[in-house]
């Protein structure tokens, strides 16, 4: 028996055994053709699964594109940090801690910030590596064994958690980078310098804020408050290391949690901080 014969036999046998339910179907109240809705443009019909998925994909892509354009064209400054080594530099970061800009606050800073380097988009680690290498190249990092490099920093942000995070990152990375070049260095955070509210307000209104960093002004105001014979006019002429030397001599050790580790702290006899400062920054 060939294939065709088997098929024919099966078909004939099977078809004769099919029950007839036609009369039952016709007797059913559902035996009718529903009206065709041709002209109604239903939202449900339009927004089927495929359409919804397509629209959603388009929306997500549009969102990504818009966010990328916004990020590239108009980055929002989420935190600002300043470094004073004596060159003073300001770095602004976006909310993901990527660099938006690096700018010089003073003339020495101008030398450090190179025009041919694209800082935008760098991570904090990358930008610090570049800047510290440049500081070393220009001779701002002291490499002798009997001297220390003092770096004054300040981080500001609207978000306290972000500020703390960036501050920790900055301190840790600065120390790592500085350790590559110098035997001794100290990162002084301007937030550890105690000021009254009135002094802070005065700093905010100080016209020198455009010329010096807030951190340097903070250090100057604190020295001035500890010893008014050091006038602000005189102090502004000094570099960070000289200011630090005066500060460490005048400040109450109880106000500085890390006083015992800080370099150049008060010596027992006949110690002149101004002389030491001049020596260090000669």
């Amino acid at each position: 028996m060939n294939k065709k014969k088997i098929k024919d036999r099966m078909r004939e046998t099977f078809e004769s055994e099919v029950p007839d339910v036609l009369s039952k179907i016709k007797a059913s109240p559902d035996f009718y053709i529903p009206e065709k809705h041709q002209t109604v443009f239903g939202l449900r019909r339009f927004f089927n699964k495929k359409m919804a998925l397509s629209l959603m994909s388009v929306f997500v892509i549009a969102l990504i594109v818009v966010s990328m354009i916004n990020r590239n064209n108009d980055p929002v400054v989420a935190s600002t940090l300043t470094l004073d080594v004596n060159p003073s530099i300001e770095i602004t970061l976006d909310e993901d801690d990527f660099v938006i800009a690096v700018s010089a606050i003073n003339d020495d800073g101008d030398e450090v910030v190179q025009k041919n380097i694209k800082y935008l988009g760098m991570t904090l680690d990358e930008v610090l590596e570049v800047l510290v290498d440049r500081l070393n190249e220009l001779g701002y990092i002291v490499t002798t064994v009997d001297d220390s490099n003092i770096i004054l920093i300040e981080v500001s942000s609207d978000n306290e958690v972000r500020r703390q995070r960036v501050e920790e990152l900055l301190k840790a990375k600065l120390q790592t980078e500085m350790n590559k070049h110098s035997n001794s260095n100290w990162v002084l955070n301007s937030r550890d310098i105690q000021l009254t509210e009135e002094q802070r307000t005065r700093i905010n209104q100080d016209s020198r804020l455009g010329t010096y960093t807030r951190a340097k002004l903070t250090l100057m105001y604190r020295i001035n408050s500890l010893d008014s014979s050091n006038t602000l006019r005189e102090l502004e002429q000094l570099n960070i290391r000289q200011l630090y030397n005066i500060f460490i001599e005048l400040e109450d050790p109880d106000n500085l949690p890390d006083y015992n580790q800080m370099p150049g702290r008060r010596q027992p006899n006949n110690y002149n901080p101004i002389d030491l400062g001049n020596e260090l920054n000669a």
């Binding site: 029950p19 339910v21 039952k24 179907i25 059913s28 559902d30 035996f31 009718y32 053709i33 529903p34 065709k36």
Partner: peptide, 21 residues
């Protein structure tokens, strides 16, 4: 099941009518 299949056969035609468009 013959009897059950008859019922479902009936439902199939009624459903096909309802969805004919």
């Amino acid at each position: 099941d013959k009897s059950l299949s008859e019922d479902i056969m009936q439902d199939t035609y009624l459903k096909s009518l309802a969805k004919i468009h």
